[in-house]
């Protein structure tokens, strides 16, 4: 409880996302219980916890997939809890998935263009009659998307079908697609899952690159080498309850965290 009273001292940073005591119940089970998260602009924040701790449920609430039973989610000073996913994407939050969900039978460039869907501003009739506005918008978005692909280093794969990319590039593409929505806050759900050490090292470099570009990242991750290396702040959840928060070094030595991971009496199987 003392943990909560501690104020964030660093006021120089702008608060981007503030999650206050959100709770989610599935019938009698409390999947997420009073979880609070603060993310400042430009930070990389991680959420960790054993399988079944409720991390992905938190993401699903943040993105409007699940309704929030109690608590508030404030993004850029605006309450966004229980809004439709579309409005949340428009507000500037985008996500990736634990098991990669690309539009696999479409090309890399098409995947990213779909990411830019909400920013592509013309209506149905304008597209049927190929008006000036349509052509302008399409050209503009194509150039933007190719620029984005170049900055991420996927441009040489532009014409390939998403399913033909190697695993690491598929992850990158998924993140690129999320960025293309115009999001400021990007939620990564276990980006390093299934990666070998070399791939996860590349991923880490990539996330650092994104951070330098000014994106804010909130991620769920199990790979401790990734979490400890790139996080500015870590939140630990176990059985839906927040058990610790702090800098990587603090978390690594927190007895509660160690207990949750190693000495846990309860042991749930399966995530979610």
């Amino acid at each position: 409880m003392k943990l909560k009273k501690r104020k964030v001292i660093d006021v120089s940073k702008e608060l981007l996302l503030e999650v206050n005591n959100i709770t989610k119940r599935f019938g009698g089970i409390v999947a997420v219980d009073n979880v609070s998260i603060k993310v400042n602009k430009g930070e990389v924040v991680s959420i960790i916890g054993p399988n079944g701790a409720g991390k992905t449920t938190v993401f699903n609430m943040l993105t409007g997939v699940y309704e929030v039973d109690a608590g508030t989610i404030v993004f850029k000073g605006e309450e966004i809890q229980n809004k439709k996913p579309k409005h949340i994407v428009e507000a500037g939050i985008s996500r990736t998935f634990q098991n990669i969900r690309l539009f696999s039978d479409l090309r890399v460039i098409e995947n990213v263009l779909i990411g830019a869907h909400i920013k592509t501003d013309y209506n149905f009739f304008q597209s049927v009659f190929r008006t000036k506005k349509f052509r302008q918008q399409e050209d503009e978005k194509l150039v933007e998307v190719i620029k984005l692909l170049k900055s991420i280093g996927l441009d040489h794969r532009r014409d390939d079908y998403a399913s033909n990319l190697p695993y690491g590039d598929q992850r990158k593409l998924e993140i690129t697609r999320a960025i293309a929505t115009g999001a400021e806050l990007i939620l990564l759900d276990e980006p390093a899952a299934g990666m070998n050490p070399q791939e996860s090292a590349e991923l880490m470099a990539f996330i650092r690159h994104l951070k330098n570009e000014g994106y804010t990242i909130l991620m769920i991750e199990h790979d401790m080498s990734v979490v400890m290396n790139i996080s500015d702040k870590i939140y630990v959840i176990d059985h839906g309850k927040p058990i610790a928060e702090g800098l990587p070094a603090e978390i690594a030595n927190n007895p509660k965290v160690i207990e949750a991971y190693l000495g846990g009496v309860h042991n749930d199987a399966g995530d979610k």
Partner: peptide
Amino acid sequence: MVVRSKTGRAFQAIRADEMASTMMGI
């Protein structure tokens, strides 16, 4: 004309993965 526009891309996105399409704001 329909297929080669954001409408057509949205259709194909829905076919490929509804959940991911939702998260693209479609």
